[in-house]
Design a protein around this nucleic acid. Structure first.
Length: 293
DNA sequence: TAATAACCTCGCAA
DNA sequence: ATTGCGAGGTTAT
């Protein structure tokens, strides 16, 4: 029997909405509500406990992983305070009411950038499948009890694989984009970790310099991994919401949406975006087994 | 500058 | 069964 620790969580935290709302692509849930994923080279299993989360992991011990999870779930964010600041917006408030424990995640920059490069004109099921295939093909094998997962390969490994191989693995026209991003990171031309300290504008410029990374993908990387809470990834669904519910002109450009969001929500724009996005996504399609692949 | 097509792949069908 | 469409964008024309 694997050792577990129970980490106390005072902040609101709902695993279902936090782990399936399109920020991340590698968590799976079983029939008993146990979530399995990969976090910085460790296979991790999570389960809701009375006062928090029961955590198992390998090879890192669960107490170490519990610490990493505080970072991953941004437990340092006072989510209730964020919600109080933006709930005056009726649509945002509806999202808060439906998903009160949905958190913005603080993920690893390279995996996040890679995943969102793959997200272009795709969908969550396919993104998940491709990310998983890259991991099983190139990543280190990890086991926890009878569960087997693989670490997401680092940039050097994907750069070595090259465009043609990535195409074979189903990346499609995104293969050269991913290969070039991997080269840039592997060669140190793009220092993703440094972008955590950089300004929004500097990070945006560095990311969009990559072929295949426009403003939307850059915003996803910035919000979900680079400490830019004001990032407002306006995808087709959010843009649709802004036009239909808020009267933004049909031809509004991306920058218009961003300015609108900043004026309205300021540094909380990222959270507001997540509530709007997930609410419209959930209402627009039938419930599907996203977490179970 | 502003619109439009092209790009891989594949599950599903307004 | 088979074909065509569109999916959490970006780039080239």
């Amino acid at each position: 029997m694997t050792a577990t620790v129970t980490m106390r969580v005072e902040e609101p935290l709902d695993l279902q909405s936090s782990l399936t709302s399109g920020q991340c692509f590698r968590w799976r849930v079983d029939a008993d509500g146990r979530w399995t994923g990969v976090l910085s080279g460790n296979i991790v299993r999570l389960e809701r406990a009375r006062v928090g989360l029961r955590v198992a992991s390998a090879p890192a011990p669960p107490d170490e992983t519990a610490h990493a999870l505080q970072t991953y779930f941004r437990i340092g964010d006072d989510l209730r305070a964020v919600q109080r600041r933006i709930a005056w917006d009726n649509n945002v408030r509806a999202g808060i009411d439906e998903y009160p424990g949905m958190r913005i995640l603080r993920q690893e920059p390279w995996e996040t950038l890679a995943a969102f490069i793959l997200s272009s004109t795709s969908n969550m099921v396919r993104i998940s499948r491709t990310v998983e295939l890259l991991a099983t093909t190139f990543g280190e094998r990890l086991t926890l009890d009878d569960a087997v997962r693989h670490a997401f390969p680092d940039a050097a490994r994907l750069a070595e694989a090259g465009e043609a191989r990535l195409r074979e693995l189903g990346c499609g026209f995104r293969a050269p984009y991913l290969a070039q991003a991997a080269e840039a990171v592997a060669e140190g031309r793009l220092a993703l970790d440094a972008l955590r300290e950089a300004s929004y504008d500097d990070a945006l410029a560095a990311l969009t310099a990559l072929h295949g990374v426009g403003e939307k993908i850059a915003d996803c990387a910035m919000l979900f991994s680079l400490e830019k809470p004001q990032a407002f990834p306006a995808d087709r669904w959010v843009l649709k919401v802004l036009r239909e519910w808020y009267g933004l002109p049909a031809n509004a450009k991306y920058a218009t949406a961003r300015e609108w969001a900043w004026q309205r929500f300021g540094a909380d724009a990222g959270y507001a975006n997540q509530y709007l996005f997930w609410r419209i996504r959930q209402s627009t399609r039938p419930l599907r087994s996203i977490g179970s692949l």
